[in-house]
Nucleic acid binder design. Structure first.
Length: 306
DNA sequence: AACCCAAGCAACCGCCCCCAC
DNA sequence: TGTGGGGGCGGTTGCTTGGGT
């Protein structure tokens, strides 16, 4: 048996609020407050609305100092930074942006900001970020060119530790994506192997979750989530954790169109193309050297607050 | 001018947390 | 200490609008 509904659904008005309803609700709350009980409020006010609907209308639209309209660059940066830190905790993000509501920010993120980030990603598709699992320093490694298997094995590239430190401070653990090296392939349908070149033919065995390369060596896909980095509606870079026959771990990646059989067969291309995970956003941001960790200490404090 | 489609956004849904009893 | 219910929140829906053909 489900829980009792909060209101009489049959006798409650739904849909857009009229100016009259707005005025009634606004006037009542400004005079009397909410009384600490939204469910009881509609009856007191004389509105045929669900209490939750009244609450939403007040919080998102009627209450004083609500800011509507364009988001500033600074607000964009804040949202991106906080999303990368805490994910889709819209109410917490909204608390950092005076006058903005969680609903506003959520809508803004879903309709504009993600695309804005994608646009940046498209401009720099070959910049990559790698994280070296073998290094005792556990740095993020930034490279302006495509890293190679040699990079992965030799640890000779320069490191940028500030982002790494920021992440560690906020999360109190090592940086995000574990044990991989990232290669961005311009090949439209193939994976680029960190060890031996392009996988023109990706023969995935769905039973043992492995695939073989053109030279016959074996790469096993680990049972971990895939990462997708979308560059547009129909194109994406897809990532999947792999481990080679020497038990070395890395991240396979490939550039794909939606028709790429390899991507589809590998389960790397599915769902909403705007469906970013937190990791993808972090990856995206670090791929483009966007230092959104503008105030790591504040962010950390905020996280501790919650 | 009419139609189609995508983007934007307000509002709803339903789950979960927390607190009063 | 357990439970019921209200509040809060993130995800989703569906209406409106504007641009393109």
């Amino acid at each position: 048996m489900g829980r009792a509904p909060c209101c009489d659904k049959a006798n409650v008005k739904k849909g857009p609020w009229s100016p009259e309803e707005d005025a009634i609700l606004k006037e009542y709350i400004e005079k009397n407050g909410t009384g600490g009980n939204w469910i009881a409020l509609p009856q007191k006010v004389g509105l045929r609305r669900c209490g939750k609907s009244c609450r939403l209308r007040w919080l998102n639209y009627l209450r004083p100092n609500i800011k509507h309209g364009e988001f500033s660059e600074e607000e964009d940066r804040m949202i991106c930074s906080l999303f990368a830190s805490i994910g889709s905790r819209w109410s917490i993000i909204a608390a950092q942006l005076p006058g903005r509501t969680d609903n506003d920010i959520k809508n803004y993120w879903n309709t504009k900001l993600k695309k804005k980030l994608m646009g940046i990603a498209q401009k720099n598709p070959h910049q990559a970020t790698t994280y070296d699992p073998l290094s005792s320093n556990n740095h993020f490694l930034h490279s302006s060119s495509i890293p190679t298997a040699y990079d992965f094995c030799s640890n000779t590239n320069s490191y940028n530790t500030s982002q790494d430190r920021a992440f560690s401070r906020v999360y109190n653990r090592e940086p995000i994506i574990p044990t991989f090296t990232t290669l961005i392939s311009s090949n439209s349908s193939g994976f680029m192997s960190p060890f031996d070149g392009t996988y023109n033919q990706l023969n995935q065995d769905s039973k043992n979750n492995s695939c073989s390369s053109s030279d016959g060596s074996q790469i096993t896909k680990e049972m971990e989530p895939d990462y997708r980095l979308f560059h547009g509606d129909y194109q994406s870079t897809y990532f999947t954790n792999g481990v080679n026959e020497n038990n070395q771990k890395f991240l396979l990646s490939g550039y794909s169109s939606s028709s790429s059989e390899a991507a589809v067969a590998n389960g790397c291309l599915s769902g909403n193309p705007l469906d970013y995970s937190i990791e993808e956003i972090k990856q995206l941001m670090s791929c483009n050297n966007l230092n959104f960790f503008v105030d790591e200490i504040k962010t950390e404090d905020k996280l501790l607050d919650y």
